[in-house]
């Protein structure tokens, strides 16, 4: 691997080893973050995302959105979720989305929770003005008009892209140290004080804290949850729904407590991915969308343009700098 391929090595700012902050490293980092003096006004860039991460990010973005939207259409074919091995119309679902007899739409959770969703879930309006009583509306599904066969074609073909790209990314990330160096939380980051500080920083819309080249701890925990929990769960529960895979790997049924449980978990994972995408996009916008999106295309993050990074805040980096200069 070349020097340029190493993430967060920053030829401009000499941030090459900032991921293991030493006193010296911190000083370099602080240099990079201090409000530039007229003498040092040239913008700093840090190499933040390797080509493998960027490639996977965009492949995955497309695959995940296609799979979510086609998955909603597949759900429309039987908008009920059950626990256990079996579950059909005569059995009791724990979740059901559908039209109400009174002309609305609702989501039923268990026997008692009845959430009105008229206009969106269970009853919505198609572009041609007709009423759609499927669980999810036309704008949320692929294909937009009801087609279980079409949705299955999208879902099951993109599943290959999703799974192969994920396996490739996982292997590359294990080999090149992305997982160990960038994704695994460091011990000190998990200290309650540090966690709390990061929560407060997020609430103040300060996302890059002291180290704009690194994921903050909330990012690490979120990506950890998505990469190491949601991704394997969604793939394995997807396989558990296949009668052929169940015959090949019967332990899948034991692992999830039956095909209908697996289907429920698959759907809950999908909701988790949807929530992740919403929060992810929101944070990209809040952190400076052009710089953030550019960094995921070119790999380079412009540090001076990072909104609310530690330079103006009371983060450890600038404080360390202040201590040094005091």
């Amino acid at each position: 691997m070349t020097g340029a391929e190493k993430p967060w090595s920053a030829p401009d700012a000499e941030l090459a080893n900032a991921d293991e902050p030493t006193a010296a490293g911190m000083g370099d980092l602080a240099d990079a973050l201090t409000p530039p003096s007229p003498m040092a006004s040239k913008p700093h860039r840090i190499y933040r995302h390797r080509v493998s991460t960027r490639l996977w990010h965009w492949t995955n973005a497309i695959a995940l959105i296609v799979m979510l939207m086609s998955g909603l259409m597949i759900f429309n074919a039987h908008p009920r979720l059950y626990w256990g091995e079996y579950g059909a119309n005569m059995d009791t679902p724990w979740l059901w989305i559908g039209p109400t007899p009174e002309g609305g739409g609702h989501l039923l959770l268990g026997r008692s929770i009845d959430i009105p969703t008229t206009g969106v879930l269970g009853r919505s309006t198609n572009p041609n003005g007709s009423i759609n009583t499927h669980a999810f509306p036309h704008w949320a599904t692929i294909p937009s008009g009801y087609s279980l066969a079409g949705a299955r074609r999208w879902h099951l073909s993109f599943a290959w892209i999703f799974v192969l790209a994920t396996i490739g990314y996982a292997l590359v990330s294990l080999v090149n140290g992305h997982v160990r160096r960038d994704l695994l939380p460091k011990r000190h980051e998990l200290a309650p004080r540090h966690l709390w500080k990061d929560v407060v920083d997020h609430l103040k819309l300060r996302f890059h804290g002291d180290e704009p080249g690194q994921y903050n701890i909330l990012q690490k925990l979120t990506y950890g949850l998505v990469l190491f929990v949601l991704l394997p769960l969604v793939i394995l529960t997807g396989m558990t729904m296949s009668p052929a895979f169940d015959a090949a790997f019967p332990w899948l049924l034991d692992l999830f407590g039956g095909r209908q449980s697996a289907r429920s978990i698959h759907f809950v994972c999908a909701a988790g991915f949807a929530a992740f995408i919403v929060v992810h996009l929101l944070l990209v916008v809040l952190a400076g969308p052009i710089n953030e999106i550019r960094s995921m295309i070119t790999g380079w993050l412009h540090v001076r343009e990072v909104k609310g990074h530690g330079a103006e805040g009371p983060g450890a980096g600038p404080r360390a700098r202040e201590e040094q200069t005091a």
């Binding site: 074919a77 039987h78 279980l148």
Partner: peptide, 12 residues
């Protein structure tokens, strides 16, 4: 055995 409909439901 379990019968799995393409729609998503199962019956044993």
């Amino acid at each position: 055995t379990r019968h799995d409909c393409v729609e998503g439901w199962s019956a044993i």
